[in-house]
Nucleic acid binder design. Structure first.
Lengths: 112, 112
DNA sequence: ATAAATAATTTTATTTTGTTGAATAAATAG
DNA sequence: CTATTTATTCAACAAAATAAAATTATTTAT
């Protein structure tokens, strides 16, 4: 479990894992994030982010039910660790602080 | 002006440039961001982020006053372009959407 | 039982970002 | 003119992001 900080893309993948709960597996994460970003992502980019975050201790994984209803390889379901939640809050607070310090000339309405 | 997306660190540097306004130059950006992140950064990391964002059209720069009060090389003052503001708002909205979609089990108070 | 279709993950290679540390430059003070 | 201060630039390397292709596993149809 080596430790480095979270990258930009990793952060988005991590947030998506939390949002998707029991449905948080590679292909579905890709779909969800593509729809939010409104542009397409490669499978590999998601998978490598997931793998790295598992190495860093931000995610754990287990294989889904052995006999799903419709064809295909079994899903690898991810979930975020406590540490992941902690670093997400941390970076959120730092960004919020920066936005809150914007000069008045840039009006700054609503949540980040 | 080649175009790629903003990295995580680049985004923080960009936000800091906006916050610092007329004082947005390498060394000062470093100080400000170090204080917000509560850890130290190298000069080069800031400079390379600035240079890359200038190439991407998110920043413009000009040299500061030719005769500063106290010794040293002239400052290179950066400012964010309209496009920079646009992408910042965009990624902010995407993250806000993700946080807003968190399952109820994770209470989610205050702005991001 | 085999082949085709489907659903996923894994692998490999390349480009872009991030990080570090040392070198260089310009201005002022003495 | 030399030392000091304040800054930027450069070069080399590590990590993350992206893309495309390969592989694996399961279901459905014949």
């Amino acid at each position: 479990m080596k430790k480095t900080k979270l990258g930009e893309f990793e952060e988005l993948v991590l947030l998506t894992v939390i949002v998707l709960q029991e449905e948080a597996y590679g292909v579905e994460i890709k779909r969800e994030l593509e729809s939010r970003l409104k542009n397409s992502l490669s499978v590999g980019s998601i998978q490598s982010a997931l793998k790295r975050m598992e190495d860093k201790g931000y995610l754990t994984s287990e294989f889904g039910a052995a006999t799903p209803k419709r064809g295909g390889k079994r899903k690898k379901i991810y979930s975020a660790t406590q540490e992941a939640h902690r670093v997400l809050e941390e970076i959120k607070a730092i960004r919020a602080g920066l936005w809150a310090s914007f000069p008045n000339s840039f009006l700054n309405l609503g949540p980040i």
